[in-house]
């Protein structure tokens, strides 16, 4: 009777210790797993959305958090982002009005993953799904201005963004400058500075700082990243 009374607590201790040892072993195996294989299967949004029973907004949130972790992990390791585009596509299809995956996802695709076509496609998808929001035409204008150097298209997007509610005060100034076809470097500095000030992500902020420093080196120290903004000559 006494033996059986002791047996259960002993087995309990063994089971608990065994589970801890196994968990640690599995954890080590997890750490050795090949990076970039986090999402072996990303389902099609059209099929997945009905199965979420109205909880697609939460699913998009959780996937977005996963994307941020994915980018962070790969940024610190191999700097390869093979599934980023597909994951962003899924997150934005699950919740087309969720702006952050378009905006930051666009930055990730453009500057970290070096997929400009995917970035533009994502931003255009966002602009079409959110016709009342200035942010996405603004970001498309920024892409065409800074990266593609297609000032006509940049102007087209910014002109559109200017008409939308809540747009920043500097946008009409950019449009005016583009019309005059002058001051491109200063506009570029202001764009990067704005991104640096508003970014809540270290990678984006570091990227903006690098670009500001580069432009400063080319155009002279007309701008600082301490929040002072561009200095007029």
């Amino acid at each position: 009777m006494r033996k059986s009374g002791l047996a259960i607590p002993m087995l309990l201790v063994v089971s608990l210790l065994g589970s801890i040892v196994l968990a640690a072993s599995l954890d080590r195996r997890g750490a050795r797993a090949t990076t970039g294989e986090e999402w072996l299967f990303l389902p099609d949004a059209a099929q997945l959305k009905p199965l979420l029973l109205g909880f697609h907004g939460v699913a998009a949130d959780l996937l977005w958090i996963q994307i941020v972790q994915y980018v962070g992990t790969h940024w610190q390791t191999d700097r390869k982002f093979p599934q980023l585009s597909k994951a962003l596509e899924l997150a934005t299809s699950l919740d087309p009005r969720f702006l952050e995956p378009y905006r930051l996802g666009g930055v990730y695709l453009l500057y970290l993953s070096r997929q400009p076509e995917a970035a533009v496609s994502l931003l255009e998808k966002g602009a079409a799904a959110n016709p009342g929001r200035w942010e996405l035409p603004h970001d498309l204008g920024r892409y065409y201005y800074l990266e593609a150097r297609d000032y006509a298209r940049a102007l087209r997007w910014w002109e559109h963004a200017v008409t939308l509610p809540g747009r920043p005060d500097y946008l009409p100034r950019f449009v005016a400058r583009l019309y005059a076809k002058t001051g491109h470097e200063e506009t570029a500095l202001e764009l990067w500075l704005n991104l640096y000030r508003t970014a809540q992500n270290d990678h984006v902020r570091a990227l903006a700082r690098e670009e500001i420093e580069r432009l400063k080196a080319v155009n002279g120290p007309r701008v600082t990243v301490d929040g002072q903004g561009p200095r007029r000559p």
């Binding site: 977005w64 941020v68 969720f98 952050e100 905006r103 930051l104």
Partner: peptide
């Protein structure tokens, strides 16, 4: 652990 969109 997310970036932006906290309120949402």
């Amino acid at each position: 652990i997310s970036v932006d969109g906290e309120e949402k």
